[in-house]
């Protein structure tokens, strides 16, 4: 059944699938309210079951031409096709964000609200980038679509993107001013470490301690600001980050287990219409 079709057979299967899906939606919609939550929880459990079983079931040698040492069970061959399908399904959800922005800016234009011209700019920019972004892949070198996409992407988008993130530098310096005020032992530690890291990264900072001998020549070389910075980032920072990651890993595993087994409480699982 799941073999490629062409011509009328293809149309038949596609239309049949659409009709079948419409029937499925109608049947699901006819389900009484009290059964909806259990159905969602079952779907959640089934969704997680594939990867969980693939992971927990015993494995045996399962060589392929590409990977002669592969180990797996009867679910392993489906891991890659399943994983390849997920981004495609996620790709269809991109429209959710687009619809939200269209509703927001469309309403503003229709009502002539303050800043409606900016909303118009949003629409023009969106459709220009979308159109020439798609045409760019197939257009020949030197063609108008290719050059317009170059102007939009290299000229406007990249410049705006880099500038937007560079503006954060100003905000972060403003935040640093607040954070670095010495009010407690923790704040002092944060201040000292951040100062050493920042000074060690710039030439002016390194000049402050360049009168000290090289690290290889003397013990006092360890107190050069760039050496201290390297030590903080590679020796002191690594175990702390690793420990934080262990905490995150165990925490995320616990949350995943709660979601998978339907134990998680909250608006998502509790309120069903």
């Amino acid at each position: 059944m799941f073999t490629p079709k062409t011509g009328a057979a293809w149309w038949g299967f596609v239309i049949g699938s659409l009709v079948l899906s419409a029937i499925l939606v109608a049947v699901l919609q006819a389900v009484p309210q009290r059964f909806r939550r259990p159905i969602i929880l079952t779907a959640t459990f089934i969704g997680g079951l594939f990867y969980a079983l693939e992971f927990f079931l015993p494995v045996a040698p399962m060589p392929t031409p590409q990977d002669p040492n592969r180990m797996g069970n009867f679910l392993t061959p489906y891991v890659v096709p399943f994983a390849d399908t997920l981004p495609v399904i996620a790709g269809f959800t991109v429209g959710l964000g687009v619809i939200n922005l269209f509703l927001l800016h469309g309403r503003r234009i229709l009502k002539g609200a303050t800043g409606w011209t900016n909303s118009l700019v949003f629409f023009i920019a969106f459709f220009l980038m979308l159109t020439f972004g798609i045409l760019d892949k197939t257009a020949p070198e030197g063609s108008i679509p290719k050059n317009i996409y170059y102007l939009l992407q290299e000229g406007a988008y990249q410049a705006l993107d880099a500038t937007m993130f560079s503006i954060i530098a100003f905000y972060i310096v403003s935040a640093a001013y607040r954070a670095f005020r010495v009010r407690s032992l923790e704040a002092t530690m944060l201040l000292i470490t951040a100062m050493v890291v920042m000074l060690g990264q710039i030439t002016v900072g390194q000049m402050l301690t360049n009168w000290l001998p090289e690290q290889s020549e003397s013990f006092w070389g360890n107190f050069r600001v760039e050496v201290m910075r390297d030590w903080i980032l590679t020796k002191a920072n690594t175990p702390a980050v690793r420990a934080i990651n262990f905490g995150l890993g165990v925490g995320s595993l616990a949350v995943a287990l709660r979601i998978w087994l339907g134990l998680e409480r909250g608006s998502y699982f509790d309120s069903q219409r």
Binding site: G48, N245, G249
Partner: peptide
């Protein structure tokens, strides 16, 4: 039809949870 969206969102939350086991073992 809102609950049908929750059905598919729930399914993919489950998929992400199932993958968390492998991610934990591979990463940590």
């Amino acid at each position: 039809y809102n609950w049908l969206a929750r059905l598919v969102i729930g399914f993919f939350l489950g998929v992400t949870s199932g993958r968390a086991f492998q991610a934990f073992v591979n990463d940590y």
